[in-house]
Simulated assay, not measured.
Amino acid sequence: MAELTLEPTRRGSTERIKRLREISDKECTPSISMERAVLLTEAYKKWEGKVSAPVLRGKAFKYIMENRTNYIEKGSLVLGEKGDKPWAAPTFPELCCHTLEDFENMNNREKVFFRVSEEDRRIQEEVIIPYWHDRAMMTRMNRLLPEEWHLLFDAGLYTEFLMQRGPGHTVADGKMYQKGFADFKADIQQEIDNLDYNKDMEALNKREELEGMKLVCEGMIIYGKRYAQQCRDLAEKETDPQWKQELLELADVCDVVPEHAPQTFRQAIQMYWFTHIGVTVEMNNWDAYSPGKLDQHLEPFYEKDIEEG
């Protein structure tokens, strides 16, 4: 049998992809982004104690999506970053309120590091720690755990990673390819309208949970609309005709998703990525949010686009 030889994998199949990879590999440094933590703190200061926990979380998420930095890199045809720039990792003080020593450790690690600026340290010390130190989930857990558990932690038998993470390793289904967030919002409103307060003792609690979910849908819709407007604003000033046209195409995509169900292969890809960003901005699941059977979800859109030329 003849020996099978494989060509070395080429990094980047087009000049555009090669340039974007170059930016990612050589021009971006892993760093901490304080933007989410600051916006979350502003939201909680506005609404904590005035609304239920589910509604508070919904309001906070919507506030973040209304005010966060939406990064756009020239040449990128899929939009969305977790932080305010590439390789910028947000913090989640509602889960774990990091100490300044934690920040020093993240900044100084030799391998898996996240650079922390002096301004980041100032914000953590003056804004985040005073508000979140006693509110963070990890702080509250530590107050409840018996001394034996603290001894196990000190001995390294379990780590902070296992204490402060949200639900991870979740696999998405196909709903986001059949419905947009406006449709989900309508479904949620229907559930609210159908609640029976006379017969269901949990109706009030269900309503609060559903109201929080509805706010999340509104936040996602705003996220896409903001990106659409940013693309058009950039296109007005752009002198590169190719990038100008691509910005207008991106705006058209964001006019559809995530508010409405995707109709094309490109819209379906953007719909998944917007949803991924939304999930990982709302809760720190360590990016363990899988698209699931992505090929099966995307195949109908691909075949439809090919058939239409």
Results as ranks from 00 to 15, higher is better:
133 H>Q: 11
308 E>H: 06
309 G>H: 07
237 K>R: 15
86 P>T: 10
153 F>W: 06
68 R>I: 14
274 F>Y: 11
201 M>A: 15
211 E>N: 09
308 E>W: 02
212 G>P: 01
175 K>E: 12
35 E>P: 04
110 E>D: 01
85 K>V: 07
216 V>H: 06
110 E>V: 00
108 N>I: 00
268 A>H: 13
296 Q>Y: 07
89 A>E: 04
82 K>H: 14
14 T>H: 07
70 N>S: 10
49 G>H: 12
139 T>W: 00
134 D>T: 12
39 L>T: 03
28 C>R: 07
196 D>L: 05
137 M>Y: 14
34 M>S: 14
104 E>M: 03
137 M>G: 14
256 V>W: 11
125 E>W: 09
183 D>T: 14
150 H>K: 12
68 R>Y: 11
202 E>Q: 15
238 E>S: 05
168 G>T: 06
97 C>P: 01
84 D>T: 10
19 R>A: 10
282 E>D: 05
133 H>V: 05
230 Q>A: 10
35 E>N: 10
227 Y>Q: 06
285 N>K: 04
152 L>E: 11
242 Q>M: 12
115 R>P: 00
156 G>N: 05
269 I>C: 13
251 A>V: 13
138 M>R: 08
239 T>P: 01
251 A>E: 08
277 I>A: 07
243 W>K: 02
257 V>G: 04
82 K>S: 12
109 R>I: 00
299 E>H: 01
100 L>W: 05
96 C>T: 04
188 I>S: 02
219 G>R: 09
128 I>E: 01
5 T>E: 14
92 F>E: 02
89 A>F: 06
98 H>M: 15
62 K>P: 00
119 E>S: 08
272 Y>F: 15
175 K>P: 04
280 T>N: 15
166 G>M: 13
142 N>C: 04
111 K>D: 00
165 R>F: 08
195 L>G: 02
37 A>S: 15
124 Q>A: 08
290 S>V: 02
216 V>E: 02
229 Q>T: 13
106 M>P: 00
48 E>H: 07
162 L>K: 08
275 T>F: 10
251 A>C: 12
269 I>Y: 03
166 G>Y: 13
160 E>R: 13
58 G>Q: 06
160 E>V: 09
49 G>S: 09
190 Q>Y: 10
104 E>F: 03
20 L>G: 01
163 M>E: 03
147 E>L: 11
284 N>P: 02
110 E>N: 01
111 K>P: 00
23 I>Q: 04
61 F>S: 01
80 G>A: 08
87 W>Y: 12
297 H>F: 14
243 W>F: 03
41 T>C: 13
55 V>S: 05
75 G>P: 01
48 E>L: 05
162 L>R: 07
274 F>C: 05
182 A>D: 14
239 T>N: 09
143 R>V: 00
50 K>D: 07
38 V>L: 11
173 D>N: 14
280 T>L: 13
140 R>T: 02
81 E>N: 12
67 N>H: 15
